[in-house]
Computed example of a mutant assay.
Amino acid sequence: MATKGEETRQFIIEKAAPIFNTKGIAATAMSDIMEATKLSKGSLYVHFENKEVLACAAVDYNMKVLGDKLLVKISKFKTAKDQLFAYIDFFSNAVNPPLKGGCPLLNFGTEADDTNPVVKEKINKGIQLNQQLLENTIKKGIDKGEFKPQWNAAEFAIMVFAMMEGAHLMSRMSGNNDNMNIITNVLKKMIEENSL
């Protein structure tokens, strides 16, 4: 059982996470968190030493929620090919993304690359986990005879991640999914070309 303090801390993180993901770390004020939680500044500081500590917890929370949702989606499929398609489909609607504010890897990564080494490292680990998931899925498909044995799993994993994140940014900026639709179609075609 969680203590009252642990419950309050979790409540603050859950309320703060979408705010940080939407506004960014620098633009989010503790007053934004106070408004969302209906807690006093003193209550917030009982649970979090400062905004940076809360921001780091919010980054972790956003990535965990996103990762959990992704794994639920992928686990519904048995074949490696269907799992790759599910990964692509999960991220395919940048205008209405799985998390409020868009992709936390892109949002926090862009903000933290030169300003916040702690968040930068968290995002780098998140990127590596995504690439590893894709690479492992392809290798599993090769082992089961779904994909061509010469398909470079590591290379394609990097390509999927980079192309999806780039398309996510472009689609968020344009306000429509046209760019994302092109990228998802290209990636699915490449998966088909490497399928047996």
Score class of each variant (00 low, 15 high):
Arg172Trp: 04
Ala29Ile: 12
Ile33Ala: 03
Asn50Lys: 15
Arg172Cys: 02
Glu146Leu: 08
Lys76Ala: 14
Lys120Ile: 00
Thr3Arg: 07
Val119Ser: 02
Asn179Asp: 11
Ile25His: 04
His168Asn: 14
Glu7Val: 07
Ala36Ile: 12
Glu14Asn: 15
Met34Cys: 15
Lys38Cys: 13
Ser40Asp: 10
Phe91Glu: 04
Phe85Trp: 12
Asn96Asp: 15
Asn176His: 10
Pro104Trp: 00
Asp82Glu: 15
Lys41Gly: 15
Asn62Ile: 03
His47Cys: 10
Asn21His: 06
Ala153Asp: 08
Ser171Leu: 00
Gln128Cys: 04
Met159Asn: 12
Leu84Lys: 00
Leu196Cys: 06
Lys189Val: 06
Val119Asn: 04
Leu134Met: 11
Asp32Cys: 08
Ala154Tyr: 14
Phe85Tyr: 15
Gln131Phe: 00
Phe147Ala: 00
Met163Tyr: 03
Glu192Cys: 06
Met164Gln: 03
Ala80Gln: 01
Ala16Ser: 15
Lys120Pro: 08
Lys81Leu: 08
Glu121Val: 09
Leu54Tyr: 02
Lys4Ser: 11
Asn185Gln: 13
Ile182Ser: 02
Gly42Glu: 14
Glu7Ile: 13
His47Lys: 01
Lys188Ser: 05
Thr184Lys: 12
Asn185Asp: 12
Glu146Asn: 04
Phe91Thr: 01
Lys23Phe: 09
Thr8Pro: 04
Ala154Asp: 14
Ser171Trp: 00
Lys69Gln: 13
Glu135Gln: 15
Gly126His: 05
Gly101Glu: 01
Met163His: 09
Lys81Ala: 10
Glu111Lys: 03
Lys38Arg: 13
Leu71Asn: 14
Leu44Glu: 09
Glu192Asn: 12
Ser174Phe: 09
Gln132Tyr: 09
Ala157Phe: 02
Leu44Asn: 10
Phe91Arg: 04
Pro149Ala: 12
Met190Pro: 04
Asn116Ala: 06
Thr115Ala: 10
Gly166Gln: 10
Ile183Gln: 03
Leu84Val: 08
Ala112Lys: 01
Gly141Lys: 00
Ile33Cys: 08
Met30Asp: 13
Met159Phe: 13
Thr37Tyr: 08
Leu105Ile: 14
Pro149Glu: 12
Leu39Pro: 00
Ala16Tyr: 00
Cys56Val: 09
Phe11Asn: 12
Glu192Ser: 09
Ser31Met: 11
Ala36Thr: 13
Lys125Trp: 00
Thr37Asn: 10
Gly141Cys: 02
Met159Ser: 11
Asp60Met: 11
Leu39Lys: 10
Gln132Asp: 13
Gln150Cys: 05
Asp89Cys: 05
Ile138Arg: 04
Val186Ser: 08
Lys100Ser: 11
Val46Leu: 13
Glu193Asp: 14
Ile74Phe: 04
Ala112Pro: 05
Ile25Ala: 06
Ile19Asn: 03
Thr137Glu: 01
Pro98Lys: 02
Pro117Asp: 03
Glu52Gln: 15
Asp32Val: 07
Phe156Ala: 03
Asn194Gly: 01
Phe48His: 06
Glu165Leu: 09
Tyr45Trp: 12
Ile191Leu: 03
Met159Asp: 11
Asn62Pro: 05
Lys122Thr: 08
Ala58Trp: 00
Glu49Arg: 13
Asp82Trp: 05
Glu146Ser: 01
Glu49Cys: 07
